[in-house]
Design a protein around this nucleic acid. Sequence first.
DNA 1: GTCTATACCGCGATAGAC
DNA 2: GTCTATCGCGGTATAGAC
Lengths: 195, 195
Amino acid sequence: MRDVPTREVILREAQLCFARQGFEGTSLNDIAAGVGIRRPSLLHYFASKDAIYQQVLLDALEDWGKQVDSTRIGDLDGWELLDGVLEASFDFFRRNPEIVRIVRREALSEQSTLGEALRPYFLQAVAFFEREMAAGLFRTQDAANLVVSGYASLLTYFSDGSMLRGLLDDDPFTPNALERRFVHIRQFFRAALEP
Amino acid sequence: MRDVPTREVILREAQLCFARQGFEGTSLNDIAAGVGIRRPSLLHYFASKDAIYQQVLLDALEDWGKQVDSTRIGDLDGWELLDGVLEASFDFFRRNPEIVRIVRREALSEQSTLGEALRPYFLQAVAFFEREMAAGLFRTQDAANLVVSGYASLLTYFSDGSMLRGLLDDDPFTPNALERRFVHIRQFFRAALEP
DNA sequence: GTCTATACCGCGATAGAC
DNA sequence: GTCTATCGCGGTATAGAC
C-alpha cells in the first residue's frame, strides 16, 4: 500500500459510500470499515459525519469545476467548443461515476444549495449558446432549457446506470455502449442546433 | 375531513415522505405524524416500513403505467402519437412530482429492479421509433438512446426542480416556465427526428 | 493517531391494555 | 383500531488509555 494520508483515504471511501448509499444510508461504521480503522478514529479527522459529507461534496464540485474550466481554453469556434465540452463532460462523468451520483442525490434534496453553486457555470453555458445563436451559427431557441436538457442527458446515463442495465438487459458501460451513447448525444445536439 | 380509509391516508403521506426524504431518511414517526396517529398504529396496517415502501412504489408504477397505456389508444400517425405521449407524460409528471422523485431515487439505487419493471414500456417505445424510422417518417438513428434521452429530459426537470430553482434563480414550475419547457422538449425531439 | 469503552438517542418492531 | 410501554439494535459522538 502507498502512504496516502488517512484523511484522503477517508474522503475517498466516504465518496464511494455516499454515492452508493446516500447520506442517510451511510453509517460511520461503513466508512471506517472501508478505511480499515475504527469508527471513533474517523472523528479524529472530521468533526462529524456531516463535516465529512460537506468535504466530499465540496471536493466533487471542485473537481467538476476544474474539468469544466480546463475545456474552455483555446480559440475554438462554436461547434468545436460544443463538441469539446460535451466530450470532456462525458469523459469526466464516465471516469467519476461517484461524483455524478452524489450530485444527483444532492439535486433530489429540497434544501440543497447545489443550484446556486452551479449557477455561474449554467449562466456561462447559456451565454455561450445565446451568443452563437445571435451570430447565426446555432439555430435560435430556448438556451436555458437546452442546457437543462444537456445536463439531464449527460448525467442521467451515468447516475441511473444500474436502472439502464435492467432496461436494456445489457451492460450500458461497455466501451461500445458508451461510444454509442456519446455519438447519440452529440448528434442530438447537432440536430437541435443546426440552423 | 372526508372519510378516507386510514390505509390510504398512510400511503399518501408515506409517498410524500419517501419522495422528499428517501427511504432511509424517512422514519415511521414522520409518516405517523403526518397521518395524525402514533407510530405503532401504522404497523397495524402494514407489516413493516419496507412493506409500506413497496406498496408506495408499486402504486406509483401502476399509476404511471396506466397513464402510458391510456395514451396509446387512437389511430394516430407517428408525429401525433409522439406529441401525444410527450404531452401526456409531461402532464403526468407535473401532476405527480412525488412519483417522479420516488422513481428517480429508486433509479439511483444499485439493487433496484426498476429497470426490469419498466423494460416492457421501454421496448415498446423503442419499437415504435424503429417502426417509424423504417417507414421513413422519422430520421434513422439509435432508438434506444433516444428513449433514454427522452426519459432523462422529461423526468429530470421535475425530479431536480429545487436545484433548477437555484440554477435559474426563478420558479421552474410557474405555468409559463412549464409551457416553455414543454415547447422546448417537443421541439428538441422534432429536430432530432425530422428526416 | 488509533484504540476501547461508553453515553445517549432514535430507530423499527412487539406486547398487551383499552 | 389506537394507544402506552418496552425491547433491542445501531446510530453519532465523546472520554480517556496507550
